[in-house]
Protein backbone atom coordinates (compact mmCIF):
# COMPACT_ATOMS: atom_id res chain seq x y z
CA UNK A 1 0.00 0.00 0.00
CA UNK A 2 1.66 3.19 -1.09
CA UNK A 3 -0.83 5.72 0.22
CA UNK A 4 2.06 8.05 0.96
CA UNK A 5 3.31 7.94 -2.65
CA UNK A 6 -0.19 8.53 -4.03
CA UNK A 7 -0.53 11.62 -1.90
CA UNK A 8 2.98 12.82 -2.73
CA UNK A 9 2.02 12.82 -6.41
CA UNK A 10 -1.28 14.59 -5.66
CA UNK A 11 0.52 17.19 -3.55
CA UNK A 12 3.02 17.83 -6.35
CA UNK A 13 0.17 18.20 -8.84
CA UNK A 14 -1.37 20.82 -6.55
CA UNK A 15 1.77 22.76 -5.73
CA UNK A 16 4.13 22.37 -8.70
CA UNK A 17 2.77 23.97 -11.91
CA UNK A 18 5.60 22.62 -14.09
CA UNK A 19 4.95 19.05 -12.89
CA UNK A 20 1.22 19.60 -13.45
CA UNK A 21 1.88 20.72 -17.03
CA UNK A 22 4.06 17.67 -17.68
CA UNK A 23 1.36 15.42 -16.21
CA UNK A 24 -1.32 16.95 -18.40
CA UNK A 25 0.79 16.57 -21.52
CA UNK A 26 1.98 13.02 -20.78
CA UNK A 27 0.65 11.44 -17.55
CA UNK A 28 2.59 8.20 -17.92
CA UNK A 29 5.83 9.99 -18.65
CA UNK A 30 5.44 12.46 -15.77
CA UNK A 31 4.94 9.53 -13.35
CA UNK A 32 7.72 7.34 -14.73
CA UNK A 33 9.85 7.67 -11.59
CA UNK A 34 6.99 7.64 -9.06
CA UNK A 35 6.86 4.66 -6.71
CA UNK A 36 3.27 3.62 -7.46
CA UNK A 37 1.50 0.28 -7.80
CA UNK A 38 0.13 -0.61 -11.25
CA UNK A 39 -3.39 0.10 -9.98
CA UNK A 40 -2.42 3.54 -8.66
CA UNK A 41 -0.48 4.42 -11.80
CA UNK A 42 -3.42 3.39 -13.98
CA UNK A 43 -5.82 5.53 -11.92
CA UNK A 44 -3.50 8.52 -12.31
CA UNK A 45 -3.09 8.02 -16.06
CA UNK A 46 -6.86 7.75 -16.54
CA UNK A 47 -7.30 10.58 -13.97
CA UNK A 48 -9.93 8.50 -12.20
CA UNK A 49 -10.31 10.67 -9.10
CA UNK A 50 -12.80 8.38 -7.38
CA UNK A 51 -10.42 5.46 -7.75
CA UNK A 52 -7.53 7.53 -6.44
CA UNK A 53 -9.69 8.50 -3.46
CA UNK A 54 -10.60 4.85 -2.84
CA UNK A 55 -6.90 4.00 -2.94
CA UNK A 56 -6.17 6.47 -0.14
CA UNK A 57 -5.73 9.70 -2.06
CA UNK A 58 -6.66 12.71 0.07
CA UNK A 59 -10.05 14.17 -0.80
CA UNK A 60 -8.77 17.68 -0.11
CA UNK A 61 -5.94 17.25 -2.57
CA UNK A 62 -8.20 15.69 -5.19
CA UNK A 63 -10.64 18.60 -5.10
CA UNK A 64 -8.03 21.34 -5.08
CA UNK A 65 -5.61 20.65 -7.92
CA UNK A 66 -5.85 23.67 -10.22
CA UNK A 67 -7.57 22.74 -13.45
CA UNK A 68 -7.93 19.08 -12.47
CA UNK A 69 -10.05 19.27 -9.29
CA UNK A 70 -12.64 16.50 -9.25
CA UNK A 71 -15.83 17.33 -7.40
Amino acid sequence: MSRYETNVVLYRLKKDPAFRDRFRANPGGALADADLSDEERDAFVRWDTRKLNELGGSLHLLVSIPGLGGH
Partner: peptide, 9 residues
Protein backbone atom coordinates in the same frame (compact mmCIF):
# COMPACT_ATOMS: atom_id res chain seq x y z
CA UNK B 1 -17.41 15.56 2.97
CA UNK B 2 -18.59 12.45 4.90
CA UNK B 3 -15.94 9.75 5.16
CA UNK B 4 -13.70 12.07 3.09
CA UNK B 5 -15.17 10.19 0.15
CA UNK B 6 -15.24 11.86 -3.24
CA UNK B 7 -18.33 9.82 -4.08
CA UNK B 8 -20.17 11.43 -1.14
CA UNK B 9 -19.23 15.06 -1.77
Amino acid sequence: FPELSLARV
